[in-house]
C-alpha cells in the first residue's frame, strides 16, 4: 500500500467514525441512521454526544410513488414500469463496475417502489451515468435504462429539496 493510499484510508476511516464512534458494532450501522446532537439538554442536564445518541430503524415504511409517476412522464422514462429487476443493466454497466453506488437496477427499483429513505441515500449516484447505452441494448424487456436514468436525474433534481432535507 502506498503512502498516499494509507493516508486516504486513514482519512476515510476517521470520517466514517465521526458519529457514534463509541458504538461497539459501529461498522454495522449506516451513517445516515445515527442521530448524535452536538447540543442536547433536558432539564438542565447535558445529554449531548454519546448520551443523546439515537439510531434510527432501517425499516422501509413508505411506498411514495410520486417520483415514479414523474419519471414515467419525463422524456425516455416511460418504460420504467416494465422493469422486472433482472439486473442485466447493472451487469453490463461499465460505471457500476467501478462505482458501487451506481446501480441502475437498484435505482429503478427504489424509484418504482417509492422507498423515499433509500432514494435520499442514493439519488446523487444517478449523475454518474455516462450514457453509453449498453444497458439499453442488454435489457430484455425494453426498459431503456439509459433513458430511464435521464428521466430519473431530471426527476431527482426537480425533487431535490425533499431529497436533501
Amino acid at each position: 500500500m502506498s503512502e498516499e493510499e494509507k493516508k486516504r484510508k486513514e482519512k476515510e476511516s476517521s470520517a466514517g467514525e465521526e458519529k457514534g464512534k463509541f458504538i461497539i458494532e459501529r461498522r454495522y450501522v449506516d451513517d445516515s441512521r445515527i442521530i448524535e446532537p452536538k447540543k442536547l439538554e433536558l432539564g438542565g442536564i447535558d445529554m449531548s454526544g454519546r448520551w443523546g445518541t439515537l439510531v434510527l430503524p432501517r425499516t422501509l415504511e413508505d411506498f411514495d410513488t410520486e417520483i415514479y409517476r414523474d419519471v414515467e412522464k419525463l422524456p425516455r422514462g416511460g418504460n420504467i414500469g416494465k422493469c422486472w429487476q433482472c439486473g442485466n443493466c447493472t451487469a453490463v454497466c461499465p460505471v457500476a463496475h467501478a462505482h458501487s453506488e451506481f446501480n441502475p437496477r437498484y435505482l429503478i427499483h427504489i424509484v418504482k417502489m417509492g422507498y423515499t429513505s433509500e432514494i435520499k441515500k442514493h439519488h446523487e449516484a444517478v449523475y454518474l451515468c455516462s450514457g453509453c447505452g449498453l444497458c439499453s441494448a442488454a435489457c430484455p424487456k425494453g426498459v431503456d435504462p439509459q433513458g430511464v436514468m435521464i428521466a430519473m436525474s431530471i426527476a431527482f433534481k426537480a425533487h431535490e429539496s425533499e431529497l436533501t432535507e
Binding site: G20, I23, I24, E25, V29, R50, T53, L54, V55, L56, P57
Partner: peptide, 14 residues
Amino acid sequence: LTEREIARSFAYFR
C-alpha cells in the same frame, strides 16, 4: 451491555 444506544433506540422506535 455493549450497544446501549441501539437498545435505547430500539425501545423507542420499535
